[in-house]
Each structure stands twice: as C-alpha cells, then as structure tokens.
Measured scan of single mutants.
Amino acid sequence: KKKREHFRQLLDETSAITLTSTWKEVKKIIKEDPRCIKFSSSDRKKQREFEEYIRD
C-alpha cells in the first residue's frame, strides 16, 4: 500500500501531468524516479494506477 501512496505522490508532484496526459507521455517523465521503479516492475500495473489516478 505504501508503494502505491508513493507512486501517487510522484504523480501529484509531476506538474507535466494533466487530465489529458497519456501514460506513454507520463512514463517517459517518471520512469527514472525511484518511486516509479519501486512501485512495480509491471508496466501494466503502473498504467492502471495512473489511469485510476487521472479518474480520481
């Protein structure tokens, strides 16, 4: 659960993310961040979390 919170925090702090951002764009920006790396090695899982984040 904590990894998820850190991942969401990373998304919060990434000012380039807007409601129209695509995962492909965002992934390029955040892929080097340790919170992104630690969250999951599964790209699909990160994408799902990102899409949920955008909906919230």
Rank of each mutant, 00 (worst) to 15 (best):
L11S: 03
F7Q: 06
K2M: 09
E32V: 00
I17L: 08
I17D: 01
S15F: 06
V26I: 15
A16N: 11
T18R: 03
R35P: 06
S42Y: 13
S21R: 00
E25G: 00
D43Q: 08
K3Q: 10
C36I: 06
T22P: 05
F39H: 05
R8S: 02
R48Y: 12
Q9N: 11
T18P: 04
F39S: 03
D56I: 15
K24C: 09
K2G: 12
K3N: 08
S41V: 13
K45Q: 11
K2T: 04
I29H: 08
E49S: 02
L19E: 15
Y53H: 10
H6V: 11
I29E: 11
Q47C: 08
S40A: 11
K31I: 08
E13P: 04
E52A: 15
R44E: 14
D33H: 00
Q47E: 10
A16S: 14
K2V: 07
R48L: 15
E49W: 05
D12H: 00
E49F: 10
D33N: 00
R44P: 10
L11D: 09
F39M: 06
R8D: 04
E25D: 11
S40K: 02
L11F: 00
Q9P: 02
T22M: 02
S15R: 09
I54G: 11
S15V: 11
C36H: 03
T20M: 11
E13T: 05
T14K: 03
R48V: 13
S40G: 09
V26A: 07
S15W: 04
T22S: 13
Y53C: 04
E13F: 04
K45D: 15
P34F: 09
A16H: 15
V26D: 07
E51H: 01
S41E: 12
R8V: 04
I17Y: 01
W23S: 05
R48P: 08
K31L: 07
K1G: 15
S15I: 10
K38D: 14
T22K: 07
K24E: 15
R44V: 13
C36P: 05
S41K: 15
D33I: 09
I54P: 12
L11G: 01
S42W: 04
Q47V: 03
E25Q: 05
W23T: 09
H6I: 06
D33T: 03
L11E: 00
R55M: 12
K24S: 14
K27D: 08
K2S: 15
R55C: 07
I17W: 01
T22L: 05
Y53L: 00
D43P: 02
R8K: 06
P34L: 08
K2E: 14
I30C: 05
W23Y: 03
K31C: 15
H6Q: 15
K28D: 12
E51Q: 10
V26H: 02
L10T: 05
Q9I: 03
E32D: 14
T18V: 02
S42M: 08
V26F: 01
E25S: 04
S21L: 01
F50D: 13
T22V: 04
D43W: 07
F7P: 00
L19H: 06
E25A: 03
D33S: 01
T18I: 02
T22H: 06
K27S: 05
W23F: 06
K45S: 12
D43C: 01
K28G: 12
S21N: 10
R55S: 11
S21I: 06
K28I: 07
I54W: 02
V26K: 01
E52M: 12
L10S: 05
F39R: 01
R44Q: 14
C36L: 01
S40T: 07
D43L: 10
L10E: 03
T20Y: 07
Q9G: 01
K27W: 06
K3Y: 14
R55F: 13
T20G: 11
D56R: 07
S15Y: 12
Q9T: 09
P34E: 14
R55H: 06
A16W: 09
C36K: 00
Y53G: 10
R8G: 05
K45F: 11
I30D: 09
D56H: 11
K1S: 11
K3E: 10
R55A: 11
T18Y: 08
F39L: 02
T18A: 04
P34C: 04
I37N: 10
K24D: 11
R48N: 13
I37A: 12
D12P: 05
L10M: 09
H6S: 14
K38C: 12
T20H: 11
F39K: 00
L10H: 04
I30L: 01
E52L: 15
Q9D: 10
W23R: 04
K46A: 12
